[in-house]
């Protein structure tokens, strides 16, 4: 009696029939709908608890992966009733598929599992991965969806975590450090500029403050300008850009009252112009360019 290793095609044909295919299809469709509903409920719940939004959203990808693995196990064990010899045959088939055609997809799936198990980043994190930057809105088996600052949804393949480094601004928390740079003229009062910038951050409606999360102000000198760098935490990473804009706008409003100027080198000739004179003498004013006086 010779050992007979079944041919994968034969195995497939022996276990697949109309009834089994129907069962698998129904199971997958029901699982898909169930996962969608649960994830949607989790997201809605997270919106009701702003302070725990990121924590609640972190459950969603974990639930998805665990649930799909259970479904796959159920299909293999109870619907297909695969024996050990059939499993060996399938392994060979799967290996061939991965090796030739679907290696990227399997790399993505492996990446997805690594992201969940290692907690590389979570749903709700503000991350930079390769050329992409944005808030993680979903971690799927194959890809991670990011919402960029321009409100675009970018689908980043999960295998990118094997080749690119990932920077997470908040790592599972709602608060995140935001760095705001203000550039001033070297002749301006740098100490006052630092004080104003600090107060602009401290009084912002988006600030997050406690013992561990304070405001740091740094001053750097460059040949043509001074840089005041404000490091402060925003209470919710969704307000990252509003927070930065709030600090910049209110700082410049106060700078203007205290004669703190933008670097002369950035705008040559700007401060030497007469009142009413256009900024660039070589260039006609906007009204001259569009010919407003002729309208």
């Amino acid at each position: 009696m010779s050992d007979h290793n079944p041919n994968p095609a034969e195995v497939l044909l022996s276990i697949l029939n109309f009834e089994v295919v129907l069962q698998i299809t129904v199971l997958l469709v029901v699982s898909y709908i169930f996962v969608k509903v649960v994830v949607s409920l989790l997201f809605r719940l997270s919106e009701r608890f702003d302070s725990h939004r990121v924590h609640i959203r972190m459950i969603a990808p974990l639930f998805k992966i665990v649930f799909y693995l259970i479904v796959i196990y159920y299909i293999a064990s109870y619907v297909l009733s695969i024996s050990s010899s059939q499993l060996v045959a399938f392994s060979a088939l799967t290996g061939a598929i991965i090796g030739f055609g679907l290696k990227d997809i399997f790399a993505d799936v492996a990446g997805g599992i690594v992201i969940i198990l290692e907690s590389t980043y979570h749903v709700g994190d503000q991350i930079r991965m390769g050329d992409y930057y944005g808030e993680v809105i979903d971690i799927g088996l194959r890809s991670t969806q990011l919402r960029t600052p321009d409100d675009n949804t970018v689908s980043v393949p999960n295998n990118l975590i094997f080749i690119e480094s990932v920077a997470s601004g908040n790592y599972g928390k709602s608060e995140m450090m935001v760095i705001t740079d203000m550039f001033i003229d070297p002749q301006s009062d740098a100490y006052l500029a630092m004080k104003i910038s600090e107060e602009a951050a401290l009084t912002s409606k988006y600030i997050f403050l406690n013992e561990k999360h304070g405001v740091t102000i740094l001053l750097n000198e460059f040949p043509s300008h001074l840089r005041v760098r404000i490091k402060a935490y925003v209470n919710d990473l969704r307000y990252e850009f509003e927070f930065r804009s709030d600090i910049t706008r209110r700082s410049w409003k106060a700078f203007a009252q205290h004669d703190i100027k933008a670097p002369e080198a950035f705008f040559p000739g700007y401060y030497q112009r007469e009142p009413g004179e256009s900024f660039s003498p070589d260039r006609p004013s906007r009204s001259e360019r569009v010919g407003f006086e002729n309208i």
Partner: peptide, 16 residues
């Protein structure tokens, strides 16, 4: 009557 309500709203929004 609204002290606790406003406090809870501000807490949810993580305001300081």
């Amino acid at each position: 009557e609204a002290i606790q309500y406003i406090e809870s709203l501000a807490k949810d929004a993580r305001m300081r």
